[in-house]
Structure formats: C-alpha cells, structure tokens
C-alpha cells in the first residue's frame, strides 16, 4: 500500500521488477484476496520525444509503485509529463528506457486490463449514448441484450437514465463526460487511467462528478491513476498524491492522504489533514508552476 518515489540511479532499480509474482491475479481482478502492494510498477522510466531533430525529455528517471486498489492522483504543472506517463502505462507509446509492469506482467501495447478515460469525451458522434457506453462490450462480442442491460445499468447509476437514445451532440459537456467514464467502467478494467476527466467542466458539475466517481470507486476498488492540475481535486480524491515537476518531467515526491473513507467531498476542505497537505504540497507545486512558465 506504499507509493515509493525513489530518486536513485538507474542501476539500483532492477530489483523491484522481479519482486512481484502476481501475474495470474492480473488476468482476473476479482480473484486476489489480499491486494498486492506493488501492483502497478514503473521502474526507471524515461521518455524522449524527437521532433524535427530536437530531442525533448518528457520524462526522466521516474519510479512509481502503486498498490492494488489505490486511488493515486498525479498533480503538476503543464509539461511535467503527466499525460506522457498515462500514455506509457496505457501502452499507447513505449518508454525510451525502463519497464512498466501490472501485477508482475509487463505492459506491451494496449490491453484490456487498462481503461483510459480521456480529457476530451471522445464519444463516437454517430452512435447514441447507449451504443457508446456499450461499445467496449460490443468489441468483446457480448450479446446485444446483455450489453444493453449493462449500459442501462451504468447510465442509471450516473443519472443518465432516459438519455440512452440521444446522440453526443445533443448532450451537455457534463453528461458526455459521465458517458465517457462509464464507457470505461462497464468492462471493469482493474487499472483505470484518468486524464483530467473533469478539466473542461464548470466547478459545480466537477464536484458532483467527483463525488459520484468516489462512490462508484468505493464499490469497485480498482486501481486508479488520475491526472489533474487541480491540487484540491488531487487531495480530495486520492489515497496518495504524486507531485510531478517539470524540465525535465519527473516525480518530485508522494504524499499519503490520511483522510478516512468514505469522504464527504463537499466538506473535505474543512478537514485539518486536507489543509495541512494542501499547504505542504502547494509550496512545491507553486515552485514548479513558476519553473514551467519561465
């Protein structure tokens, strides 16, 4: 249940990879009785992008160990490699150095163990909301009746009942984003990546959806890696807050959030632990934000 942030040399890091042997449990997320402490492991990850002959260090010497069923938020200024990190874990891009393992099995390309909720809703405009939500089930060959039932269940769960036949263009931003989230939840991936899913929403819609997300997560307890630039959101939701820095993108430090669950997201900023963490992380985050705009 520990997030380790190790700013060590590359050579020291290989031992972490061999440690986990929970490969079998990764295939079936509901099976393991005791959650693995080193479920999602990033070992000495570096990513360099080359554009027009210039190499950009998006991420360097990044180590992160996330326990199964943890809700981890990544916070940092723009350009600190948060999205790059998610894309690496999702298997959309390959690291220049280092390895990523989930339950002991290395990530090689995209796979169904990982769900990804993008910042833009990316709903298919030619499909109704129901068909969008059921899309991953359709890909897996789930029969029509079952996928309809499961889609309706999830739409009802997030207050979208009755909008199943609407096209995305007919829905508000908040509704589309709920559709985007349940489209991932419906196939139950053990690891869920979220890239500022509430970024484009207004403050009220945002807090309602944060509350909804937490209550759903309390039931499923999947492993969540949630990117945000909003420190308040990062602390409210997380078991652990990972602060990332820029130039080059890297992990600066991790903080455990010792606030009991279930949480009242509407009142959480009154909590002394919340205030303490906010002040503590803000000092470092502020310095990074200044560095990012220089």
């Amino acid at each position: 249940m520990e997030v380790e942030q190790l700013e060590r040399e590359a050579g020291n890091m290989t031992s972490t990879i061999a440690a986990s042997t929970a490969g079998a449990s990764a295939a079936n997320p509901s099976a393991p009785a005791s959650p693995a402490a080193d479920y999602l492991v990033l070992s000495n990850i570096a990513k360099t992008f080359i554009a027009r002959g210039n190499a950009t260090n998006a991420l360097s010497a990044t180590n992160l160990t996330i326990g199964q069923g943890q809700f981890v938020t990544l916070v940092g200024p723009s350009g600190c490699g948060k999205s790059t990190l998610l894309n690496l874990v999702a298997g959309l891009i390959e690291p220049s150095e280092g390895t990523i393992t989930i339950g002991g099995a290395p990530v090689r390309g995209t796979d169904r163990r990982i769900g990804y909720v993008t910042q833009a809703d990316n709903l298919l405009p030619w499909r109704t909301l129901r068909d969008n939500v059921a899309f991953p089930l359709e890909l897996a060959g789930v029969p029509v009746a079952e996928r309809r039932e499961r889609a309706d269940f999830w739409m009802h769960r997030v207050g979208l009942a009755g909008f199943g036949d609407a096209y995305p263009s007919e829905l508000s931003g908040g509704m589309r984003q709920r559709g985007n989230i349940i489209r991932t939840l419906i196939y139950g991936p053990p690891v869920i990546l979220m890239d500022e899913p509430f970024g484009p929403l207004d403050a009220q819609t945002r807090i309602v959806l944060q509350d909804l997300l937490l209550s759903i997560w309390e039931e499923s307890r999947s492993t969540v890696l949630f990117v945000t630039h909003d420190l308040s959101e990062a602390i409210s939701l997380a078991d652990q807050v990972v602060l990332m820095g820029t130039k080059p993108g890297r992990v600066i430090r991790c903080e455990n959030v010792g606030i009991e669950r279930p949480r009242d997201i509407f009142q959480i900023h009154e909590h002394p632990e919340y205030r303490r963490l906010y002040k503590q992380i803000w000092n470092d985050l502020g310095a990074q934000v200044k560095k990012a705009v220089e």
């Binding site: 959309l92 995209t110 169904r112 990804y116 899309f135 890909l139 897996a140 196939y187």
Partner: peptide, 20 residues
C-alpha cells in the same frame, strides 16, 4: 484519438476500420 480509445478498449485493427 477515437482510434486510440477503441484500441485501448480492445478493438482489433478490423474493428477499428469497420466501427470507427
């Protein structure tokens, strides 16, 4: 982005072609 999302959700190349 639509193709990437479908890929993550487990779409095959053929499914990406026909469904996206």
């Amino acid at each position: 982005a639509l193709c990437s999302v479908a890929k993550i959700q487990g779409a095959t190349q053929w499914q990406i072609f026909t469904k996206i």
